[in-house]
Write a protein that binds this DNA or RNA. Structure first.
Lengths: 188, 188
DNA sequence: GACTTGCTGTACCGATCGGTACAATCTCGG
DNA sequence: CCGAGATTGTACCGATCGGTACAGCAAGTC
């Protein structure tokens, strides 16, 4: 059994890894208990809503992390090229260069999609809006900026899927490089 | 209960839809029984290996479909632009313009990934090889062809994920259009 | 040292999991 | 019409599912 948890702040990341690795359906309370070192009593004390609340809270924390480390910098930056580079760096770091899955994407694909549909949509929409805003500042039209930013999100999710499917993280790195080039290309 | 199945040929597609919609872990025998109209007795008569064999056989049939309708045309074509257009058409048709998930990708993301790792890798590798071969015929270097073909697979998978996450299939259509442009662009 | 209060592990709940056993039924050559 | 073999539904298996109940314990407070 893993070391017991000091406080709730350490709890959510461990929960997140279980959901990432096994999906919502596959993340059993036995696995969660083992990964956190907490018995069911403690888990249901922290999350009276059970597994659904655990996943919702994890999603909320992930959302918060992206808000602080990615969305806000994108919105506030006055240098689009630098903002994109920062985003790519943060994304690469967060996803461990392709070794780590995107929990939001994993949930979107599973049967639990409907349960968390609002949070999932909101996450991607805010990311898309923030990135498109940055691209507009670089002189792109609203349409092109939106298209490129959506393409970037597509590339990130696809790169994670393919890197995992092929068990080859270089796919992720290459995709991030290509994506950066595309985001910063001159308007056609 | 759904109409009973006439023969095994009709069985696999229904099975596939269950795995697509619920993932490997989420596809319970109760759901499978309901979707196929077959009791457990019949199911285990057709698939002595149980759920794992059902998924393996479904993957094999999907692999066969792609081999015939996508990989072979890519390898045999002497007109890369036409071959790419054919592939995009087949992909759009197969995935119902983004409404339908990619079972191979879904499995790659789940906890059952390791069980089917070989089939999953083989599927994507053969697709990648066939597409890269076509691109080479259009005059691209091996390196560029490989990079572009991997990028295409990334885009397809990512577009499916994002379209489902945002519940907006236009994301898929746009991504397919962008991908086609990129595949056929002049060498830089 | 009694008492509350907050965590924690654990025994247990009904439901459901994947899988098995088997008897009933169907199919069809003879 | 019959018997062999294929096919079927269903009862049942042990295990595990998510979730609940509760007794035990640690830490203050007085």
């Amino acid at each position: 059994m893993a070391n017991p948890i000091s406080d709730r702040a350490d709890l959510l990341p461990r929960l997140a890894e279980v959901f990432r690795a096994h999906g919502y359906e596959g993340a059993t309370l036995a696995l969660i208990s083992q990964a956190t070192g907490l018995g069911k009593g403690s888990l249901y004390h922290c999350f009276p809503g059970g597994k659904a609340q655990m996943a919702a809270d994890v999603l909320a924390e992930i959302d918060g992390w992206f808000e602080v480390h990615i969305f806000v910098p994108l919105r506030q930056s006055d240098d689009p090229a630098r903002a994109v580079a920062t985003m790519v760096g943060a994304v690469d770091s967060y996803f461990h260069s392709g070794h780590r899955m995107c929990l939001v994407g994993v949930i979107a694909l599973g049967a639990s999609r409907d349960t968390f549909a609002v949070q999932v949509q909101d996450y991607f929409k805010r990311w898309n809006d923030a990135l498109a805003l940055t691209l507009r500042r670089s002189g792109l039209s609203a349409r092109v900026a939106r298209r490129r930013s959506t393409d970037a999100l597509v590339t990130i999710q696809g790169a994670l899927v393919l890197a995992r499917a092929l068990d080859d993280c270089s796919v992720f790195g290459q995709a991030m490089a290509d994506m950066t080039t595309r985001l910063l290309a001159k308007p056609a």
